[in-house]
């Protein structure tokens, strides 16, 4: 309880090279970029951030947004608002919708995607979307840089799989086009994680047939689920889905959520499933959603 005079070493490296050197010397230092979470949870006048803090917000290499032929490359500390404005035309619709649901417009002028992914309380906003888009993260550290597919960024304990002194430099989103994209998030407010549910879906159609579909679900700000077998089964189907197909998909997803989740409440499972079925059934048509037999 006693408040002693706190001595904080606060580093502000000028560029990426200096940052990597500093961070490898102080691998337990707190990285401070947008800082919206670090400061928002510490509602004291002088926040307690840690004994060593490295300020990475001003590093040019971490704030660039760049598009190559294969990837949209987003600097981990690029403010979300910058991303929403500069890359509006090239951002996948589901990611655009996801980003506009994070924080407030003023907070998005500070917060970045790297911070969102690094934070176990926040990451269920962008993580499932980046998972569905099959994005990669580029990590940089004392041993150089490497790339990880998004799902491999986090271990089973929900910790980042980073080596000491390693940090997220960029997020790479493959340049692909989809026929339809969905991002839907439901939560009463951020501080009620038990109310959080989200569905991200992308699909490609060829001649009226589903040629690819990806469905990623998140729940309670801690679970992320993707049913790859079911995605494979969707390929070749022709929307609108028949009643039988819908019933089958409903049962399949319901068992998946009960097993993989667990998502104990039927109404929560139902919400996720129906949002996904609604998406699939409407692919490439104006058809209305068929009601599964049991409902």
């Amino acid at each position: 309880m006693a408040a002693e005079q706190r001595m904080v070493s606060f580093f502000s490296p000028a560029d990426l090279t200096e940052l990597i050197q500093l961070y490898s010397r102080h691998p337990s230092a707190v990285l401070f970029a947008g800082g919206t979470w670090l400061l928002g949870r510490e509602q004291k006048k002088i926040p307690v951030l840690g004994e060593q803090v490295i300020n990475i917000g001003g590093i040019d290499e971490l704030t660039r947004i760049h598009r190559t032929e294969r990837f949209l490359e987003i600097g981990a500390a690029a403010p979300l608002s910058l991303l929403l404005e500069q890359a509006k035309r090239v951002l996948p619709v589901c990611l655009y919708r996801c980003l506009t649901s994070i924080g407030t417009p003023a907070i998005r002028n500070l917060a970045g995607l790297g911070g969102n992914l690094s934070n176990p309380e926040y990451r269920m906003d962008s993580f499932p979307v980046l998972f569905a888009l099959e994005a990669q993260v580029e990590l940089i550290g004392p041993e150089g840089s490497r790339r990880l597919p998004i799902p491999r960024l986090i271990d089973s304990e929900n910790n980042l799989r980073l080596k000491p002194g390693e940090l997220i430099q960029r997020i790479l989103i493959p340049v692909e086009s989809f026929t339809e994209e969905l991002y839907w998030k439901h939560e009463h407010n951020f501080w009620m994680p038990e109310t959080h549910l989200s569905v991200t879906a992308v699909a490609r159609m060829e001649k009226g047939t589903i040629s690819e579909a990806r469905l990623v679900f998140s729940a309670f700000r801690r679970l992320v689920m993707r049913h790859r077998e079911l995605e494979a089964e969707l390929v070749g189907r022709v929307p609108p889905l028949s009643q039988r197909e819908t019933e089958y998909l409903y049962q399949e997803l319901d068992s998946f959520f009960q097993a993989a989740g667990p998502i104990p409440r039927e109404l929560d499972r139902r919400m996720l499933i129906l949002k996904a079925l609604d998406f699939l059934s409407n692919l490439g048509s104006e058809a209305t959603i068929p009601v599964p037999g049991r409902y």
Binding site: F10, L39, S81
Partner: peptide, 15 residues
Amino acid sequence: GRPVPSCLVLAANIR
């Protein structure tokens, strides 16, 4: 030039 809540900005960030 962009609006931000200044309670979420540190002295170190305004250099």
